[in-house]
Write a protein that binds this DNA or RNA. Structure first.
Length: 506
RNA sequence: GCCCCCUUCGUCUAGUGGCCCAGGACACCGGAUUCUCAGUCCGGGAACAGGGGUUCGACUCCCCUAGGGGGUACCA
């Protein structure tokens, strides 16, 4: 995903085109199932492609599996040019050579014993019942040099390269061949990809050269490492990451939201290693983009905030760090919070309403009254809503008064244990009932007067009221809370709490 | 085994020979504000993997060692 983002930013910056090609040579898995979430993720992040699946374009098709003919033609040209040969070795024969090399502690280099350079040899070997694959006839001396936009000059001895197979006996082509051919035919100028491909580059360059292509410019990005280790981050290692505290918290936070929504979470995509997790939970795409940008890239020693426009303006491949960057859930959340804080309450309201609907706490026709009430909640929540789904932490505003659940610890601490707490609450209830305005400031004034008259500390009553009215020990400012609930509901809730205090359950 | 790559606070990073007894951000620890929580403000601890060179001077250049990673496929 980060790789895609970097590609996207780079193409936008250069005024180029961003092509999406699916390299699905030899893919037996259900591609569509794997592809759709990825495309959705791109779109959610605002990464759009100029050509590719679902949008088409002049270089179609964009699935490698549909370009087989072109690949085969290229193989034939390679054969004709003497840059490749038909190899009739049996797999076990290759394996034997490989093992021999290993025993002698030298690097493996195919003897080319079953190489057929002309039709006569080929016919003879075929007569033995052998089948041929096509291998690259790689140079065995000299060095391969190229300039990588991230790594600088790269130099590799040709001798350390193998005669890679580019076409199987059944005629199907392998990725390296296919991608070089496709890159050329699609007029790709820049290939920005993960470091795993760095060591593949020489053979691809060899193919390109042999075919007379002008190769693209390469930029190899370091991988993203797991939290707490230097290994490559993988979506398949979720269980292992759950042992890491920060990662666990990130997951648990999302899980709480999804569970409140009552979604049967599809385990496949509910994974903090995949973008869909953040979409479901209600992160801001801009925040995720910003975090991803900073994973391995920086502008200088102070600037961290980058809007899409700023990314396009300032990004450069040269400033990508060559060492892998670790995925840090805390930093991601911090950036998300920063973006959230910058939003107006109206913006947050818009983000939050769908969550309330999906949770079933609001029913579809959202009228002005509902909007202003939820608006008041969002304003009172202030910075407490870090991701859109956090609104679900404040369900007590949406539960019917007679179904409010009380947090047992808070109930004990604030209403049962303090001597006279119930009586105090009852008297404050009456003071509240007499209130003519229900504005936060007026309510605070009222409570101050109450505290003075009772000769008590503010803390002796305020927490008791919060528990009675929200069921929880923590929440917004109490006076905002009371104002949002309004006189009727406040009194109903206090009365209910008083009742339950008077008749403790057995 | 062989080839290639990487290595600054816990984390992301700034630093391209003197501006650095190393700067910022997140996290952490104090303290302040206070009705809880969130936030905000102020303060604090925290790093150049190790060893050799080169140089008047190395985080910065060279070599070695260690650690980590990738590749070594009829995977992508």
């Amino acid at each position: 995903m980060r790789t895609a983002l970097f590609n996207w930013i780079f193409s936008r910056q250069q005024g180029g085109q961003f092509l999406l090609r699916i390299d699905d040579t030899d893919q037996q898995r259900n591609l569509q199932d794997a592809l759709q979430p990825i495309l959705d993720g791109f779109r959610w992040l605002g990464i759009d492609w100029d050509e590719g699946p679902e949008v088409g374009g002049p270089h179609a098709p964009y699935f490698q599996s549909q370009r087989k003919d072109r690949h085969c033609q290229a193989v034939q040209r390679l054969l004709d040019a003497g840059a490749a040969y038909r190899d009739f070795a049996r797999p076990e024969e290759i394996q034997a050579e490989r093992e021999a090399a290993e025993r002698e502690q030298r690097s493996f280099c195919y003897s080319r014993r079953w190489m057929a350079e002309d039709d006569g040899q080929a016919a003879r070997l075929a007569a033995e019942g052998r089948q041929a694959v096509v291998r690259l006839k790689m140079p065995r001396s000299g060095t391969c040099q190229f300039h990588d936009l991230v790594r600088g000059e790269v130099e590799v001895a040709w001798a350390s390269e193998q005669d890679h197979v580019i076409q199987r006996a059944d005629g199907s082509c392998l990725y390296h061949l296919a991608s070089v051919v496709d890159d050329h035919q699609m007029q790709i100028t820049h290939v920005i990809r993960a470091v795993e491909h760095l060591s593949n580059t020489p053979r691809q360059l060899f193919i390109a050269q042999s075919l007379g292509y002008d190769p693209p410019v390469f930029a190899h990005l370091p991988f993203v490492a797991e939290p707490g280790s230097a290994n490559k981050l993988s979506k398949r290692k979720l269980q292992q990451y759950m042992k890491q505290p920060d990662f666990r918290r990130l997951y648990a936070h999302g899980e709480r939201i999804v569970q409140t929504l009552g979604l049967a979470e599809p385990v496949e995509t509910f994974n903090p290693v995949l973008v869909d997790f953040y979409r479901q939970v209600g992160y801001l795409p801009a925040a995720l983009n910003n975090y991803l940008l900073l994973l391995g890239w920086s502008l200088d020693d102070r600037r961290e905030d980058f809007s899409r426009q700023a990314m396009i303006e300032h990004f450069s491949l040269e400033r990508i760090n060559r060492a892998p960057a670790r995925f840090d859930p805390q930093k991601l959340l911090a950036i998300e919070e920063r973006y959230m804080r910058a939003l107006s309450w109206e913006d947050k309201l818009a983000l939050v309403l769908p969550y309330l609907e999906r949770a079933g706490w609001l029913s579809p026709p959202i009228d002005e009254a509902v909007r202003s009430r939820v608006g008041a909640i969002v304003q009172a929540a202030g910075d407490r809503i870090k991701v859109a789904g956090d609104i679900l932490d404040y369900g007590d505003f949406f539960t019917p008064d007679d179904r409010l659940a009380y947090d047992p610890a808070a109930w004990q601490k604030r209403l049962v244990k303090p001597p006279g707490a119930a009586d105090l609450l009852a008297r404050f209830r009456n003071a509240l009932a007499a209130a003519e305005t229900f504005e936060p400031a007026a309510l605070e004034q009222r409570m101050q007067e109450f505290v003075a008259a009772e000769e008590i500390q503010l803390g002796q009553i305020i927490h008791a009221v919060r528990v009675a009215v929200t069921g929880k020990a923590v929440g917004f400012g109490l006076f905002e809370t009371l104002a949002i609930l309004g006189p009727t509901r406040c009194l109903a809730r206090i009365d209910r709490a008083l009742e339950q205090l008077a008749t403790p359950p057995e």
